[in-house]
Design a protein around this nucleic acid. Sequence first.
DNA 1: TCGATTGTGTATCGATCGACACATAAATGG
DNA 2: CCATTTATGTGTCGATCGATACACAATCGA
Lengths: 204, 204
Amino acid sequence: MAERGRPRSFDRQAALERAMDVFWERGYQAAAMSDLTEAMGINSPSLYAAFGSKEELYREAIAHFAATESDDILSPLQNAPTARAAIEGYLMASAKTFTRPGRPPGCMVVLSAVNAIGVGDETTRILREMRAGSVTMIEERLRRAIAEGELPSSLDPHPIASYYVTVQQGMSIQARDGASRQVLEMIAQGAMAAWDALTIPKAA
Amino acid sequence: MAERGRPRSFDRQAALERAMDVFWERGYQAAAMSDLTEAMGINSPSLYAAFGSKEELYREAIAHFAATESDDILSPLQNAPTARAAIEGYLMASAKTFTRPGRPPGCMVVLSAVNAIGVGDETTRILREMRAGSVTMIEERLRRAIAEGELPSSLDPHPIASYYVTVQQGMSIQARDGASRQVLEMIAQGAMAAWDALTIPKAA
DNA sequence: TCGATTGTGTATCGATCGACACATAAATGG
DNA sequence: CCATTTATGTGTCGATCGATACACAATCGA
């Protein structure tokens, strides 16, 4: 059962995290192989032996991002007691994680391949599905709230979910422009100001 | 007064517009000189003679963008009769211009240099000022509304302006992911749902 | 100990990047 | 006409891109 051949001399997971930081900060295209190998502390052939190619490394990096950073943002959607608290928690957690000291500002899934040039079609599809997945998760939380009687059954969850995800994606841009956690939290509160108007059935 | 030397054989303004399209669609880095010269219908030395460098061409392109596309978005802020109509018009105009057929989706100022790598510091500063300029313009419109008695004087314009600009920047991301004008308009309406809660002084 | 297998470091590949040298073409003023 | 000035097209520059060839090192099973 033991591994054959010469053992790898570096920590694959640690190297992946360093690569994630580079992709996160610079974006896919601007992250040169030399940037990656320098940050990972390995030579180019070791990178290719362990990860296959720059694009495969990038895919592993966004998967690792989703499993760590992204999870912090989405967990309020599952755990908060009400739909309103869930979405507020989602935005407030975004404000926090988008401005973590020592980490690139904003969301890697949103910012690291905006123009989708140079990255393969399959990777582009994965990124789009991850972004669309946030909308789906919020929709489901809203549907649950409808089923539980918190929100009226006449509500259409989709536009509400799209709206809040749009705000959250805009917060990534703001974070890149230097917005602090406090500023992002103010923006999140601004977005939550729409809650009652969006969820209480109109007389019209 | 006539021009000396051999006259330029191409329309400089038309070439600039083609270059703008390339930068807008692909982003600054991914726009290769070969992409630009092909779209502009000229050879590399002609580009350098007329525009100086890739980055100077890019600066002219974003200036041209601001003078045309961007103006369509910001004009409601000046012309609408009320602050609410101004901001609603700003978002609705964004929904329209972000999905114009035959043009790249979303806003060039927001999308074409997200990671700000490879582009010079001065150009980065210009882009950030353009983005921040939207916040300032909305703030001023809100202040005008306060002065005119439309909005209460206790209102703080800055967080409201930041909030709406954040929504608009998120709409650029949504447009890049294929959102239609109708979807973006729904999102804009979602953002406007916060208006009363943001502008009517709270009892608290 | 030895063949098989796998990882590492050096050095470099062809392709492409942004930018330009140079000779020529096309306009001007005199 | 000619000297000057500016633009164009061909060709190519050094640098860097992502990706490997190759020889050697380090582990395995037998």
